[in-house]
Structures are given as structure tokens and as C-alpha cells.
Design a protein around this nucleic acid. Structure first.
Lengths: 343, 343
DNA sequence: AGCTTCATCCAAAGCGCTTTGGGAACTGAT
DNA sequence: ATCAGTTCCCAAAGCGCTTTGGATGAAGCT
């Protein structure tokens, strides 16, 4: 069923039917009701493509998911972020279109989305330091919003980020206050912006307390269970082992715990652990009592909000780019406790 | 830059330019070269919407991700599956459009995709027993392919599935051969088709060996770390505790391991564990030596292949629906060993 | 009555592409 | 020189919608 058929069925012009369905005022209430009724009966929905062609909008948002060609790895937070964003799009009648792209082809994918007029805007995932995508998108004139930030980018842009610096600063301080002096950091990949900020927060808290930064207690890499396990195991085996570990993801925290327990130590007593928790739906941090003390911030919420911001920006192209900095909660769970006394 | 401008620039008609770019023969090689050169120079790409309107194709595939409204849970395998499918789409010039839908609205979402002509076909995720989506899609006449199968659905349809039954049958038999007699099953949600098949395989292997099925050793639910932990902990505390556990996901297997180790037991010695492993990029089952003995089948591969099947079906609407049954590998890792001797 | 105003509706153009149905120019054969 | 057959190109229609610029008639006013 298309507009033409529907209007013929009703004995009306396409103009009138279109206007009736789109809420324009030049249609009598009686006619509008009749049209809406018929549309429902015939299960009519305007073709997105035709509508898009006519209006010049795509009614779609692009999500370009970077996949490191090295690691063939999809960010595990991606599913929940998308779920949040999807809610927003559904509410606004937008579609979400997804491209999985290895980092080499990124430029051409963004150009393609722009020149094929496939989307009205894009969400940028996983920003790196000095991310080249941001100036590129600005140059292309394709509206965009970034999940995170990119230190070093000078053009203004819309973003939504967790205050990673403050979260890790507070977490470090919390461990310090519990008496810990040898605090390790298991961070994400170095060139990711969030990892950089977390390290900043960590180091700033250490120095604020007059502690020196010990690079032998710092690791960065992909955040897998194994990497958490391996790093912890190795650190605990050495002299000067940490009494507390700050960890960037719940997945690697599972590995951290395993290494601790394998050594016959008790998490929260012999070694304290704080992890960042993105509140992933398939990886809950305990039920009532959190297993891990964590800096918590829901990535699904972030998806919802960032999508909203982007739609705003598209509707309102003149406005200056918005941004939002979410504070992570520091929730106390069973994985932290006072530093063990040296006897 | 659009076709009109490009063709004016070249002093050619739109027809000729279109044909040159789409590989039609009625264009001289010289002209074609000139056109292609100009298209590259101006970074011209045809508008997907316009092209779709003109050809009647959407050049897009829909992925409708069901989200249980109860659990607000996105399937963790989803990211990797999508990554695989995305590769295929990119190669064929298709777009992937995603809808996250809670189970209540499913029907209207599929109808919408169909009547708005937004996609050429859809992938059905997470089929349940007697899944209503399959007859619905068949009725709508929207091409589709299912990741998994739906027992009880009588209409023919295209699908790709892991042989869950045989995988769990073999895994159970393997444990039996190692001397295990009390083998537990931690399964996914009961109404999911794959869970049903895995249980079948498990029970069939038990009875084939003359063992009776002990329902107190069977659990089903969402596959989280916590559920694996909780179920294992509880089972190990009881008399008649299992000496081996068959587990439906690597995530819950992590919980299983934790419960085992917490009790001071050694995985692979006191308690053997086999898990299904979807080869998720962010959750590798060890590096050289697998941590867990596992039934392994790459979900990313499944995404690639199923997308290919769907595109085939769309290109060739007359053909009978294809299907493919992938056998999972049974890979031996460190988590299994002979059943402990009762002294 | 004659005029202006509304309230409703419609025909037709246009969005950017593909595709149909020719048309010119050039070949080679008669 | 004529004619059919190629080769290469083009004008225009059409995909399904929105939107512009009226048209029509009823109602209100002088």
C-alpha cells in the first residue's frame, strides 16, 4: 500500500492524505480521522526512502564501530550502548545504521555515509587521543557526537563522557585512605582517550598524597579476563607486590580476582580491588552487595543521552555543540578493605 | 555532488553516467574511464535513498535485537555476530539497520520494516521454541534467515545453527568417559531453542550410558557470571555434588570456576568443567592452552555465513530456503580430567 | 449583491536515481 | 550509394513521497 493507492481509496488527493497523516492544519478534523482510520486499516506506512528523498533527511543515525584490525575485537560495552541509543531513536522515529569498520577504512566510510546521504549524523565510538575522525567529520559537515572525548582535538564538538579522571582519582584516594600505598593500575589501551584520563586521575591522586608513581605497577592493554589475570599474577609474584589494584573493566577484574585467589589470598583483605563498572547487562557486579567496589556509570544510559544530544544537534544546527560530563558513582563492595599490616 | 551535476560536468547525460558507473555495456571504454575518473575526483556516491527508490531495493538488512523487557538484557554474543555479518554486508554494498525491540512490540516492528520498505530482509536473533516471528515473517513475505532454529515451526525457513545437541552430547560423553557420573548442566533460559537442544543432547548421552537423569543437577537461567557461581556453589555444597559441570557460556563458566576455587577445589581435578565457547572477541578462552575444555563455534563466523545466506535468498527468491548446521569442535583444555576416585 | 476572508482541498513539481525506448553516427556488406 | 547492424549516447518517465502555489466554495461583512 502506498500513498497513491491509499488516497485513491479515500477519494482524496495525495497532498491531503499526506498532510492529514503528518499533522498539518489544512485538513478538516473529519477528513483527518477518516484518513488515519484508513491508514491503520491498510497498515500504511510511508516509505522511508521516498520520504527521505522528498525531505532531504535520512531519518537515520550512523554508528561506526571501529574494529582494531590487529585484535579483531569488538568493544564489549558496545551492545549495551547501542541498546540505550536504540531506545532514543525508536522514540524519535529514527533508524540506526551500523557499520563495522577496521581502522584503515574509517575515513572512506565516513565520507561514504556523508556523500550517499545515508544518515543525518553519526556517533563516534571509542575516541582516541587526537582522534582524526573528529576534524574529518567537522570538515565533512556531518553532524556527530562523541562517546567520550578526544584530548588534543581543537575543533568544538558534541560529546558525552564519564568523568574518568575524577572517578579514578577518587578511587585511588579511597584506597589510599584505607592505608594502601602500593596501588596498581590496570588500564585500557594507551591511545584510548579514556585510558589516558584514568591514568591522569590515578597519578594525580598518588602525587597529591605525596606518593611517587611507580611505573612497574602500571599496565595497559586490552581489557580481557586473561590480561587482568596475567598482570595480577605477575605483579603479585614480585617483591613489592601491590596491596590494591585499580582496574578498568569488570571483565579484567574477574581475571584479577582469579589471580588473587589462585595465590591463596583473599580479595578485599589481602588485596583490594576497585574496578570501573559500565553496568553491562550480561555482567552484573553482584546483586544486592556489589562484588567489586567500583566506579560505576551506566553505558546504556550514556547511549540514551548521547543519542538525544545528537538528535538535538541535528534539529538545531546553529546551536553550539553540547556536552555532558557524567560523574561515576563510587560504590563500595566486598573487594576493598584496609591495607594489610606488615608485621 | 549528485548525478545531475556530475553529468553536466562531464557533458554527458545522466543515463550514460549512471550506466558507466554501474557497469552496463552500452558505454565506450573511454567514456567509462572518464566518468569513473570524475566520480572519484568529485567523491561522488549515489544516494542510497534515491537508488533504492528507483530500483525498489532497500540495499539494507534489518537486525531486530530482542530485549527481554524483564531482564533488560542484550545477548553478549550479539556484538561479535554483528561484526561478522557486517563484514558480509560491506562486501556486498548493503547496509545494516538495527532495531532494539522489547518482546512486546516485535510484531509491529517487523510489519513496520516491511511496509516502510526499509530493508530487503531481516535476521532473526535468539529464536525461541515455537517462535512466533517465523510464521509472521513468512506471512509478511519479508525474506529472513534465523540464527539458530525454532523447534515447532512448520513453515520452511532459512537458518544457520550450531549443532547444539550433538555438541552437548559429545561433551557429556567425554565427561562420562573420564569417569564422571554426576554431571551437572547449567543451561540457558528454557524457552530458548538452543537451550532445549543442548539439554536434549545432554540427556541423550546420559541415558545412552545407562545413567538416569537427575533433575537436581540441571539449572537453567540467564547466563551470567553470578548465575554460574550461584548454581555451582549451591550444588557443591549438597551431598551428591557433581564431579563435572556442563555450562552454556564462557561467562557463566567464569562463575563456575570461582565457586569451585572458593571451595578450595581444583578445576580439572576435583571438578571438571566443559563450557560452550562462542569465541567472543573480548572473552577469549585462554591463549595457547584453552582454560576451559569447550564446545567451540565462532559466532562471528556464523554472522558472516548467515548474512551471506540471506543475501543469496534475496537475490534468488525462488530457491528453497537454505540451511547450515555447523558442528562445534570439542577442544580439550585444562578444565577437565578424570573423575576423582571416591575413597 | 459584491467583496474579502477562511477553510479545504488539489495538481504538479521536485528529491536523485534507474531504465525504457529511441536516435544518431559509424560499420561493413550489397 | 544504400541498407541493415552496431555502437554509443540521450530525453523522459517513473520510483513514493513532500511541498508549492493555487482553486473552490462557504461564510462573513458592508
Amino acid at each position: 500500500m502506498n500513498l497513491k493507492e491509499l488516497s485513491q481509496n479515500l477519494g482524496l488527493s495525495q497532498t491531503t492524505v499526506s498532510r492529514a497523516l503528518n499533522g498539518y492544519p489544512e485538513v478538516s478534523p473529519a477528513t483527518r480521522a477518516r484518513v488515519e482510520e484508513a491508514a491503520r486499516a491498510f497498515n500504511y506506512r510511508p516509505s522511508t526512502r521516498a520520504k527521505g528523498l522528498a525531505t532531504g533527511q535520512a531519518l537515520a543515525i550512523g554508528h561506526v564501530i571501529p574494529m582494531s584490525s590487529k585484535h579483531e575485537m569488538v568493544n564489549p560495552i558496545f551492545g549495551d550502548f547501542i541498546a540505550g541509543a536504540g531506545e532514543t531513536y525508536a522514540r524519535h522515529g529514527y533508524e540506526m545504521i551500523l557499520s563495522i569498520v577496521d581502522d584503515k577504512n574509517e575515513t572512506s566510510v565516513y565520507q561514504g555515509l556523508k556523500s550517499r546521504r545515508a544518515v543525518d549524523g553519526v556517533i563516534v565510538h571509542g575516541p582516541r587521543m587526537n582522534d582524526t575522525r573528529i576534524p574529518l567529520l567537522a570538515k565533512l559537515g556531518l553532524p556527530f557526537a562523541v562517546h567520550g572525548r578526544a584530548s588534543g582535538c581543537t575543533v568544538p564538538y558534541a560529546w558525552l563522557d564519564v568523568n574518568n579522571r575524577s572517578a579514578f582519582e577518587r578511587a585511588t584516594k579511597y584506597l589510599y585512605d584505607l592505608g594502601h600505598r602500593r596501588i596498581a593500575l590496570l588500564n585500557g589501551l594507551e591511545d584510548m582517550d579514556f585510558a589516558h584520563r584514568r591514568r591522569d586521575g590515578y597519578m594525580s591522586a598518588l602525587t597529591a598524597q605525596g606518593l611517587s608513581v611507580d611505573t612497574s605497577l602500571m599496565r595497559s592493554g586490552e581489557m580481557t579476563e586473561l590480561s587482568g589475570y596475567g598482570a595480577t599474577r605477575e605483579m603479585l609474584a614480585r617483591p613489592g607486590a601491590p596491596t590494591a589494584i585499580l582496574c578498568s573493566s569488570l571483565i579484567s577484574a574477574l581475571g584479577v580476582r582469579r589471580a588473587i585467589e589462585e595465590k591463596g589470598l583473599v580479595m578485599g583483605k589481602d588485596v583490594s580491588v576497585i574496578t570501573h563498572d559500565d553496568v553491562l547487562s550480561y555482567l552484573k557486579n553482584g546483586e544486592e552487595v556489589p562484588i567489586f567496589t567500583a566506579t560505576r556509570s551506566s553505558v546504556r544510559d550514556a547511549g540514551r543521552k548521547l543519542a538525544e544530544m545528537l538528535l538535538q544537534a541535528i534539529a538545531n544546527p546553529e546551536a553550539a555543540p553540547c556536552s555532558e560530563l557524567l560523574e561515576a558513582e563510587l560504590i563500595v563492595g566486598a573487594s576493598t578493605g584496609p591495607a594489610p599490616r606488615k608485621d
